[in-house]
Amino acid sequence: MPASPAHLHIPDGFLSPAVAALGWVIATVVLALAFRQTGRQLGDRMVPMMGVLAAFIFAAQAINFPVAAGTSGHLIGAALAAIVLGPWASLVVMTVVVGTQALLFQDGGLIALGWNIVNMGALAAFGGYAAHRAVIRLTGDHRPARLGAAFAAAWVSVEAGAVATSFELAASGTTDINLALPAMASVHALIGIGEGLLTLAALTILMAARPELLRQEEEAGGRGQALFVLTAVALTLLLALAVPLASSNPDGLQAVAQAQGFSDLARAIWAGPAANYLVPGVGDPARATIAAVGLGTLIVCGVAIGLGRLSRRGSRTAG
């Protein structure tokens, strides 16, 4: 199965054992919460619903539209799922998709699966959901606002995963953050636009045929918990990865390792692929990109909010 071309699926060999292990810890915790929450939300409908919808996402990722010069765009789907089903259910569905892609199609590694689940499941679903809620709360829930919110949710979901991936790779010493972050962030800013258009259009069909589905999601509880988890995940991610990056004093690392008589193995566990080698620290390009991504997120959400408000005012004066 051709992968969704966003290609955030990290293969095995790219992450250091310590980084990979951290990914698994986060993934396990978040997944456990998600299953419990989704079980409460859906009752015994959970298994058939999540299963069939995961199959849908898989198939939907195969639908293409021509972008330019022979390339095509595809849906990832985390944001769409989060808008219709809520972030927890979206996380379950995306986890199943990503896990199957790794297990069946070798799209992404097995040890790297922890982070792949976090990037393309948790961060994508919650990032998108948070953006969606934020825009709706600031504009109201009339139709243009919903569409704008959907676009913003989709864009943020893609960008969040991409940014996180570049940090994980850099923390493992596989890439230079000053190269990876700008590259991934910019490419995915474009992919995010595609995701936004697809999500928007898909939502119009759903709004027309089953509006009560979307209303159900709105009224469902667990909102505070969702945002809490998002923040917790994001903070943990930043902290955990900032540590190895901040310790961009490789000589220090070497000295410590030798002083303690660490074997090659132990050094490999700590510093992974970059053991013995120099780990470039966070430089200006990386900082600039972080700022750009943050700005981009604010712009996308801001535009959605602005348009939403304008259309509301417009309909009020017209009505």
Partner: peptide, 21 residues
């Protein structure tokens, strides 16, 4: 326009999936 067509296809698939589930 292409994206919109693809997105609508995805929306239809989503609906069918929900009904099947």
């Amino acid at each position: 326009w292409q994206a919109r067509v693809a997105g609508r296809m995805i929306g239809s698939l989503f609906l069918r999936a929900i009904e099947r589930s």
